[in-house]
Design a protein around this nucleic acid. Sequence first.
DNA 1: CGACCATTTGATATGGATCAAGCGATGTGG
DNA 2: CCACATCGCTTGATCCATATCAAATGGTCG
Lengths: 227, 227
Amino acid sequence: MLMRTTVQNASKQSPGRGSQAVPGTPPLAGAIEMMGAAMTFARNSEIFGEGEPADYLYKVVSGTVRTSKILTDGRRQIGSFHMAGDIFGLEVGDDHTFSAEAITEAKVLVVRRSALLGLAARDGNVGRQMWMLAGRELARVQDHIMLLVKTAQERVVCFLLEMAQRVPDGNTVALTMSRQDIADYLGLTIETVSRTLTMLENEGAIELPTSRCIMLRKRAALVRLNS
Amino acid sequence: MLMRTTVQNASKQSPGRGSQAVPGTPPLAGAIEMMGAAMTFARNSEIFGEGEPADYLYKVVSGTVRTSKILTDGRRQIGSFHMAGDIFGLEVGDDHTFSAEAITEAKVLVVRRSALLGLAARDGNVGRQMWMLAGRELARVQDHIMLLVKTAQERVVCFLLEMAQRVPDGNTVALTMSRQDIADYLGLTIETVSRTLTMLENEGAIELPTSRCIMLRKRAALVRLNS
DNA sequence: CGACCATTTGATATGGATCAAGCGATGTGG
DNA sequence: CCACATCGCTTGATCCATATCAAATGGTCG
């Protein structure tokens, strides 16, 4: 096992001012809309690094963000992909345990953690939402563990279903991430991911009009493959 | 990939009354000592099951507890091992996402979740501690992910170092769990775990006086193997 | 068009799973 | 006290899924 990956860095921005209140949204998300500073990150630029102090919380407006960790020998593990509406960068400790990079150009709202904590102290709803957010994160990570003990086919199918879940048309998935990103998320190699996809296509379970667009043909069959 | 495991069940107890206040302990642990009902679980009995409502929080007094999940095809993944002092069973949602079984006979303190939540509402320290507990749990699970992408040798070494960390004499580890438990924790088979251990013994990195007792001989070498 | 990068495809190697047997401890009944 | 079954663990032989190495293909941008 040994998979090397290159990740380009770009100079990091620091949050400016921007955006307005959006009434009628849930307290935490609402607070971020209201208090958040809008920032744009270029493709492949780092949003924060592993081990850095977690002073901010982030919400994706557009684009895709990945969180990852690099082992000493260069292997990379991707923890999650975040898309429009997702909140990321929440830490319970003081520091980020993962780094975050923009996969595509990404617009992101940024709020000071201290501001949110202050708000949470005053508004119980915000606190409760942060608790729920942490809980969802925990569930996500636990699911990811279950992913990593499955076969290559099961992992890829899992990934497809996961992605399909979050798009409007639940059967057409436009992938924003490279095969390498997918592979590092699933703990496989790009070759295995690619081969598994063509296999699924040959079986008629999916269609690949282009390498970055996947259409789920037989949802039921896929769910079944998912073990 | 296909590993079947048998888990015997025993009739489940329901919490009775017991135990007294212990002054000078941190708020959450203290609250559990104070309010907790002592229960004893026989070897291999279930403490709670996946999907059951998470009405209680648990703290190990003695013995070892494992949390696990079973995939539809019988594969089992162990999420964690809990020993004296460890708190387990904390959920953010309403239901347990794992089941818990006693590996050895285990004495456990049990508190109603609702009681703790009530306490947390009044005492900010308890709330903060629950937050920290969730955070530590999240970190543990993330580390587990990093484990599962490593080689067999690295996983076994990781496990040994992890276990060694929690015992008084940090170099002699008395394992309370079977090879099958270890294998299911590491996402390997018993055969691979066994072989890896004998390999490490042949290299002089560890000693195996008995199959359940492991002595770390060359900590530094092990840490290096850990990648 | 040509250079470059991402992806696919092919050939081969290998780490760990699987299948099978042996071994040592623990317990049970005669 | 000793045969003997049982259970957990180790060891050996073989197989297979996925990694690795290498080359072909295709899409994008100058």
